[in-house]
Amino acid sequence: QVLCIDNEDSILIGMQSLLTRWGCRVWTARNREECAALLNEGVRPQLVLVDYHLDEGEVGTDLMRWLRAELGEPVPGVVISADGRPEMIAQVHAAGLEYLPKPVKPAALRAQLSRHVPL
């Protein structure tokens, strides 16, 4: 059960297609409001894949902090970004999250997934 958060619809469509083929149940959201709506529907992801740079200045690490607080558990998360600055990657790791560079290589994504969900 994977939640994908990105502000680009084309990325969400691609991730949903790929992850569904791998047997995952996938939910997508573009922002905190859409995540809140999913949580209100009872969605409880086993893993969250989140873009670093979201709309309106929101960053993936902040959204994950909020999501973990809402769920009341430290759900695993992977921040996906084309921003490969060492300080940004350090911030991701300091938040207890993994990092994958964009464009995402399917093999690297599958390796991350297999650490958190049965494939």
Rank of each mutant, 00 (worst) to 15 (best):
N31P: 01
L38F: 07
I13V: 13
L18T: 06
V75W: 10
W27G: 00
A107H: 14
H93N: 07
L12F: 06
G42V: 07
L47W: 08
G72P: 06
V43H: 03
A29R: 02
L67C: 08
D62T: 09
G77F: 10
P76Q: 14
V26E: 06
V50Y: 09
P106T: 11
E87S: 07
I13M: 05
R30Y: 10
R32Y: 00
W22S: 09
C24T: 08
L38P: 00
Q16P: 02
P103D: 15
L54E: 02
P74W: 11
G14L: 11
V48N: 07
V59C: 03
C24Q: 15
Q46G: 11
A90I: 05
A37W: 08
R32G: 04
E73P: 00
E33T: 10
W27M: 04
V104E: 04
R68D: 04
G77H: 03
P74C: 12
L100H: 06
L19Q: 07
Q91N: 08
D9S: 09
R25H: 14
I89R: 12
S17R: 15
H53R: 15
R68M: 10
T20M: 09
R32T: 14
R30A: 14
G84A: 15
Y99G: 01
I5E: 01
N7M: 04
G84E: 14
G14K: 12
L63W: 02
G84T: 15
L12I: 06
S81W: 13
A29S: 05
E98M: 08
R30W: 07
R85S: 02
E73I: 01
L71T: 07
G72K: 14
L47T: 01
L71Y: 08
E58F: 07
K102E: 02
R85W: 05
L12V: 01
R30C: 03
R85E: 10
L18N: 02
E34G: 03
K102A: 09
M88N: 05
R85P: 01
P101W: 14
A36E: 08
A29K: 06
L71S: 01
D62W: 08
V43K: 04
A37C: 08
P86F: 13
V50R: 02
N7G: 00
R25W: 12
T61V: 15
C4L: 11
G23H: 14
T61K: 05
I11T: 09
D83C: 01
H93A: 05
G72V: 06
M15F: 14
R65K: 15
A107C: 06
I89D: 00
W27K: 02
V92Q: 10
L19R: 04
L47F: 12
P74F: 12
H53W: 12
W66E: 03
S10T: 12
T20W: 12
S17T: 15
